[in-house]
Amino acid sequence: MPPRAEMTKEVILDAAFQMVREQGLDVLTARNIAQRLKCSTQPIYSAYGSMEQLKDDVYSRTVHFAIDSMQQYRNESNASAMNLAIGCLMFARDEKQLFRTLLLSDYGTDYLKRNPDVMNEQMYAAFMQIDDGLASIPERNVQKMFLKLTAYWIGIGTMINTGTLALDIDEATEMLEEMFQALKEKEGLI
């Protein structure tokens, strides 16, 4: 009989993340993870003191995965900030359960209240790094642009994710481009 694989935190986290990615956050229980890993719940609680700790780690991984995914979209004819916004829409379309976990779940809301800068800080840093023109306007104005564009793409992304509006990526992209251009024009970047 071959030796049993060690149930490390990383193995457990990988399984939990994949479960959330496939089926959503509601499926995340010690029993379901144990079934997926073909073990008892004991190794899960040995590695993680509580399911809350495991959920926090899954959420943190989801944030990093989302940002990495969003930054993968590149179209040379777009401003970099626009590419990030379109990447966000594609994430909403392609990673339905992760998008819902991040932005539409009660757990996500609670996590972000406990860790208010986790996602915004990373997204804002990415926003600042990808468009050189933003450095030429006052910080307060950049923050307003970021907030407006974020609210807009989350709203459109939610409609795409949930299917509440028949909107394809091309139409959504056009809407985002119009909003981004209007924001840039308002700040004198065009």
Rank of each mutant, 00 (worst) to 15 (best):
D110L: 14
Y111L: 00
E76C: 08
R93P: 02
R93N: 09
A126D: 01
C88A: 12
L104F: 00
M82Y: 06
M82T: 12
L98V: 10
A81F: 05
N83E: 12
M119N: 08
S80V: 07
A79H: 10
E76M: 06
L98A: 09
Y111D: 00
E139V: 15
Y107D: 09
G133R: 15
T101L: 07
Y124C: 03
T101I: 01
N83T: 03
F127I: 04
L102K: 01
I130K: 05
N83Q: 08
L134P: 01
L134I: 03
A92P: 06
L84D: 03
E95H: 13
K113Q: 15
L103M: 15
K96C: 03
A126P: 00
M123D: 05
L102F: 02
G87T: 00
A135G: 07
A81Q: 11
Q122I: 14
S105D: 00
R100F: 06
N141V: 07
F99M: 04
D110E: 13
F99V: 02
L104S: 10
S105V: 02
L112E: 13
D132E: 14
R100V: 00
N83I: 06
L98D: 06
D94W: 05
E76T: 14
D131C: 10
G108T: 00
F127P: 04
M123Q: 11
G133E: 14
S136N: 11
F127T: 02
Q129N: 15
A81I: 11
N115L: 02
A85D: 05
F127L: 02
M123I: 10
L112R: 15
D110F: 13
R140C: 08
E95A: 04
D94P: 02
S77P: 00
M82L: 14
A126M: 06
M128E: 12
R100T: 12
Q122S: 05
M119G: 10
L84F: 09
C88E: 13
L112W: 09
L103T: 11
D106H: 09
K96E: 05
K96Y: 04
D110N: 13
S105W: 01
Q122M: 08
R93G: 03
A79K: 12
A92Y: 04
G108C: 02
A125I: 06
R100I: 04
Q122D: 06
I130R: 09
N120K: 11
M82F: 08
R140D: 13
D117R: 14
E76Q: 10
G133W: 03
A125K: 10
A79M: 05
Y111E: 00
M90N: 12
Y124P: 02
A92E: 03
R114F: 14
N120C: 07
D117L: 11
L112Y: 13
V118C: 10
K96M: 05
I137F: 03
L104Y: 02
D106F: 10
Q129E: 12
D110V: 15
Q129R: 15
Q122W: 00
V118L: 15
S136C: 08
K96W: 02
Q129S: 14
R100N: 15
Y107M: 13
E95K: 07
C88I: 12
S136G: 10
K113G: 07
L112G: 12
M82C: 09
P138R: 02
P116V: 07
F127H: 04
D106S: 10
L89N: 04
L102W: 01
P116R: 04
D106Y: 13
A92K: 04
